[in-house]
Amino acid sequence: MYEVKVFVTLKEAVLDPQGSAVKNSLHHLGYEGVEDVRIGKVLTLRIDSSADKVEAVVQEMCEKLLANTVIEDYRYEIEEVVTS
């Protein structure tokens, strides 16, 4: 069993209005050193797969559904978990 975390963020070239709003809010709170805020999402998946296949499967899922590669980048972390 694998636990997979998929991180999806807007591409650098794409304006992130939510991130800009949060950045402004942080500035109002006095955190003026904040230069950039980007908002993304984390998806946590548990996948029953084999060691040689799990990464290919995760990548395929990201390309097909989890991220829209026109506007988003993705990366993932795969960790084997022991099931009792």
């Binding site: 794409v14 304006l15 209005p17 709003a21 506007i71």
Partner: peptide, 16 residues
């Protein structure tokens, strides 16, 4: 757009 029948993608409105 998501189906790929048209090019591009949608973002949140600029002013949210």
């Amino acid at each position: 757009l998501e189906a790929g029948l048209l090019p591009g993608a949608m973002l949140r409105n600029e002013k949210l």
